[in-house]
Write a protein that binds this DNA or RNA. Structure first.
Lengths: 234, 234
DNA sequence: TACAATATTAACGAATTATGTACAAGTTTT
DNA sequence: AAAACTTGTACATAATTCGTTAATATTGTA
């Protein structure tokens, strides 16, 4: 498999075939799925490299597929559908789709867009291991587990997600709005003081645990997970 | 301004304004360009973080802009144009555009697509760290961190932004009004003595640190960040 | 030199921003 | 159905920044 596996999720067999032919001609291998439930099973079992998704499908709907996929993975996901409302486009993109193509599509355009998304993704260092480690801190999002000095510390989901997000890009500052967007999700409309409170609760749990890292406030800007690689490797 | 600069290249002032307003509302700062030659100059000089490009523009055409940009940089580039042929779309994407949006556009969709592209780019290791370095001085705006001879020095946001702005164009003089415009934002209306005070506070922190650089007063004009590449590399 | 224009500095208070506590609504567990 | 927990909001308090003012110093020029 030189170019990778594409999972096509679409009820319409015509679309499926057009896409399948073009993709296989280009060297991809193709998996077809005609309803949402089947799609999720195949996604989990076969770990495709790209997903092409129509949101209008039987059983589990496309939006839900989107969410489920993005919970677990960052692979390229392109929505191809006849739902043409701006609202739907925005929803799809916000849920984590990389592109949103309208039916009827021109296969050449679709192939070009797949290529464009792939180009970006190949520049990424996607951490599929949903885990970060610093010194005595381990945040594992597959298990939703926080470990401090080897011991498991209970922490609610939101706090873990927030910590994980901050720790994924150590030392980089995020504004409260960015955090609300990325951790809470765009659908969330609320007070940005909310972030403060969660930060505070995290700090309670992580207080005085390590000299090497901490959650820092950047006054007037936001928060960051600060990590100092003190002592070089010896 | 944590979000970054957008360069809009488009002859049509209506489009420009719609985009500009929406982007600024979201916290981006916007640079406009109405022809290709000007666009390239601004691209090189101002190092934007995102480019929105109409390919139908006077002088150097959009495709060429695309090529020139991609020779030097991997920043997000989105084509927004009324050229609706599949051929053009494919060409644009092949030249390295991340997305291709048709006019007339819905601003909500455009914003969602910008976000989607940004999401991908932020996962890549080519995250542009907004940083300048001179001798023993490091100003890092991604971390909001000022480092002098390796040591972190605390400094409030405004001071950092001012220093970063000055240091981004070493040896170039800025009037107080220009600085108020660029650092404080155009909507700011206040005394230009304000700049003096911030300069003073910066100088306190950076006093006698290096022979190679300093913040100089240009009498009757304004301020500049002066940098002398004395000694060649040793 | 003297004078005017411009720049530096210190100090103060208003405004902005962050934190901590408490509570209520919503969930999940028992 | 009650209990325990999570989550978001409100508000009081604390901390810091920022802009202004005004007094002092410096520079350029007549």
């Amino acid at each position: 498999m030189p170019l990778g596996k594409v999972l096509i999720i679409d009820e319409d067999k015509n679309s499926c075939n057009t896409l399948k032919n073009a993709l296989e001609k280009d060297g991809y291998s193709v998996i077809l799925s005609h309803d949402g439930d089947e799609a999720l099973i195949k996604f989990n079992a076969l770990k495709p490299d790209i997903i092409l998704l129509d949101v209008v499908i039987p059983k589990t709907d496309g939006w839900q597929i989107c969410r489920e996929v993005r919970k677990k993975s960052n692979i390229p996901l392109i929505i191809i559908t006849s739902k043409s409302e701006t609202f739907d486009k925005v929803l799809g993109l916000e849920l984590g789709a990389d592109d949103y193509i309208l039916k009827p599509f021109d296969i050449k355009e679709v192939m070009a867009r797949i290529k464009a998304v792939n180009r970006r993704v190949n520049q990424s260092n996607i951490i599929e291991t949903r885990e970060v480690t610093y010194d005595n801190l381990v945040v594992n999002m597959s298990r939703y587990e926080l470990r401090v000095s080897g011991k498991i510390k209970d922490a609610p989901p939101k706090e873990l997600e927030l910590l994980f997000y901050l720790a994924s890009n150590p030392n980089r500052v995020y504004t409260r709005d960015q955090l609300l967007d990325e951790v809470w999700g765009f659908e969330y409309y609320g007070d940005s003081r909310t972030v403060d409170v969660h930060i505070k609760r995290l700090r309670e749990k992580l207080d005085g645990v390590s000299e090497q890292w901490s959650i820092k406030t950047v006054w007037g800007v936001g928060y960051k997970f600060e990590f100092n690689e003190k002592f070089g490797d010896t």
